[in-house]
């Protein structure tokens, strides 16, 4: 297990180092997410009053769109110069490479979400920090569910020419439940009378989804990456 985590950490550290030099994914994803929230705010906020219930949907759709953008780039570094082949040839558990890529992506999305949550709370006057622990659980579990499926699909499509088209086509049908759970859970938290029982139920369902899809992804990564 420690060897598995060591390899995953090596991949995360490498990705962070590359990102710290290029800042390509962070800037692209963050810029897109901020633009998305701003555009929605022009459409859904009238006279300083946001349309009721819009904030939860806008928060999650921004996460989904910017997450898709990041996922599209997740394996690009490995594709250039065929570095993926170098990784796959290494005598390591290949799922550890998947976990490393997933963790790197989660760190990036965490930064993006920190900005997006503050923006949504401010622009839509949404009481997102009223139950911050539960919101954090929803965001963390929802992002893990979305990114775990997305990282696998991104890896599957890395050698495909039309990957930019295929990724969302494959990703959204599978991750729609995550987004619905995220939106419903967040809406339950920020409605005038917060429904904490309902929010916890959605968190439990997200946990179940994450467990299923993470297991499937770890199980299928090796055969998927063998030509």
């Amino acid at each position: 297990m420690s060897e598995f985590l060591r390899v995953a950490w090596l991949v995360v550290r490498k990705d962070l180092r590359v990102e710290s030099r290029s800042r390509e994914m962070l800037f692209t994803t963050l810029f897109f997410a901020v633009s998305c929230v701003l555009v929605f705010s022009f459409g859904f906020v009238r006279g300083g009053q946001a349309v009721e219930g819009a904030a939860a949907g806008i928060l999650w759709i921004t996460i989904a769109f910017s997450g898709t953008l990041a996922l599209g780039r997740a394996f690009e570094r490995e594709r250039y110069h065929d570095a993926l082949r170098g990784l796959l040839l290494a005598p390591v558990d290949r799922p550890a490479i998947y976990v490393g890529k997933l963790l790197g992506l989660l760190l990036l999305l965490a930064v993006v979400e920190a900005v997006v949550v503050v923006m949504v709370a401010f622009l839509f006057r949404a009481p997102l920090f009223q139950h911050s622990g539960l919101l954090l659980a929803l965001l963390a579990l929802g992002t893990v569910g979305f990114a775990s499926v997305g990282t696998l699909f991104s890896a599957m499509l890395v050698r495909t020419k039309s990957r930019a088209v295929l990724l969302p086509v494959m990703l959204y049908p599978v991750t729609i439940p995550v987004l619905i759970m995220g939106v419903s859970g967040t809406a339950a938290l920020i409605q005038p009378e917060p429904d904490l029982v309902m929010a916890r139920l959605w968190i439990s369902l997200l946990l179940f989804f994450d467990a299923v899809f993470l297991t499937l992804a770890l199980w299928t990564f090796e055969p998927v990456m063998t030509e």
Binding site: V18, H81, D82, G86
Partner: peptide
Amino acid sequence: FLSHDLQLYPEL
């Protein structure tokens, strides 16, 4: 395995 593409990370 050294392929035609050099399997290096140019940013590192």
